[in-house]
Simulated assay, not measured.
Amino acid sequence: MSAVLTRIVSSRLFWPIVMLLVLVTINVIAFPGFLTITVKDGHLFGSVIDILRNGAPTLIIAVGMTLVIATRGIDLSVGAVAAISGAVACSIILSSPDPGSVGTVVVAVAVALVIALVLGLWNGFLVSVIGIQPIIATLILMTAGRGVAMLITEGQILTVNSPPFKALGSGFLLGLPVAVVIGTVIFAIAALLTRRTALGMLIESVGINPEASRQAGVRARGLLFSVYTFCAFSAGIAGLILTANQTAADANNTGLFIELDAILAVVIGGTSLAGGRYSLAGTLVGALVIQTLVTTVYTVGIPPIVTMVFKAAVVTAVCLLQSPATNAAFGRLRTRLTARAGKGITAS
């Protein structure tokens, strides 16, 4: 029994799940109907559904960020890519003679995602071919991306009236919000490709030791291109969801600071920023913790101006509980308890 308990506590998912349960408990105490889910017109509604829908963009980006961080990299440009994606889609829809047409929306979404892919290739080129440090390479696009989005929107907030486009952010599919369905599909595809094939192991090997991986025949350059492109593609999808939910492209605020939330979700989930082993399941829990935390701020009545401080405190607590020093302390405590139990059995 003690061995099972030790294995559970030592899991990278233990403390994030504990923190998530604590946040849910706080919400249930403050609002007893928090876990209630109702069905209206065949669609699911409730606080839990709102958390899933609002947290979907963060999860989608965090999935791509997880693979980037696993290669010992980082992508600070995802927020700018999201803004560019939304700006491109809205500008195409507004310039169309039939903004409410499904065909127009399909073209707008396709063009936006192609541009996101190009931006991901640019990041991959700077990192894998030119050899620029990932934080600097993506900082370039992070800085310039908002300016590019402003140029596309001409400094204006582009408001669109297109029901098919709005459905991406606030529509429903099979009773669930479309954003949740898209997030689930992205997560499932990433999990299948990296855990059911050798791709995940190759990504981890590049993150652990790039030089040894190269000498072993791993095509590190191609992998870096792939993960940065996928991360930008994920950011493009998230940007479309955010923009569709607002029915407007705001170059200044769409995806603002979402790169930080994505990185926090990855770190909370137990993936090391030093590269190597990663956990997509942990990233999922981390994204839920981040969004539940934001919801808790409003449910409990904490002033929104201190949201960032509250978020930092929770993230710090989770990281401290996951730290090697804390694990070592728990290990010593388990050893003492086991020794005392052994003495008790001997004495009896």
Rank of each mutant, 00 (worst) to 15 (best):
L173K: 00
A179N: 02
P177K: 05
L199P: 11
T247V: 12
G183F: 06
A179F: 04
F257Y: 13
T184C: 12
F230C: 11
R196G: 15
G239W: 11
D250C: 09
D250Y: 06
N209G: 13
A179P: 02
I186V: 15
A232R: 12
I152G: 10
I135H: 03
A244L: 05
A198C: 00
I258R: 03
G169V: 01
T254I: 07
I189K: 04
T153N: 03
M142P: 07
L199Q: 05
E204K: 00
L192S: 07
I152H: 11
R196K: 14
G175A: 03
L202G: 02
E211T: 15
I152R: 12
G207W: 04
I152V: 14
M201C: 06
G171Q: 01
C231V: 09
A251Q: 07
G171L: 00
A191S: 12
P163E: 02
T229P: 07
E204R: 04
F257P: 00
G155R: 09
A238T: 10
L242P: 07
C231A: 15
N245V: 00
M150H: 05
A248D: 01
F225K: 09
G145W: 04
T229M: 14
I241M: 14
A232V: 11
L193D: 04
F225I: 11
L168Y: 06
R195S: 15
E154Q: 11
Y228A: 11
A137N: 04
L199G: 06
V180H: 03
A144K: 01
V185D: 03
T184S: 15
A191F: 15
E259G: 00
G200K: 03
I203H: 13
A248I: 03
T194L: 12
N252E: 07
A167F: 11
V180C: 00
M201V: 14
N252W: 00
P163G: 01
A251C: 05
L224E: 03
T184W: 05
P163W: 00
S226G: 12
T254E: 00
T247R: 08
R146Q: 12
V185L: 09
L256M: 09
S205R: 14
G147I: 11
N253S: 15
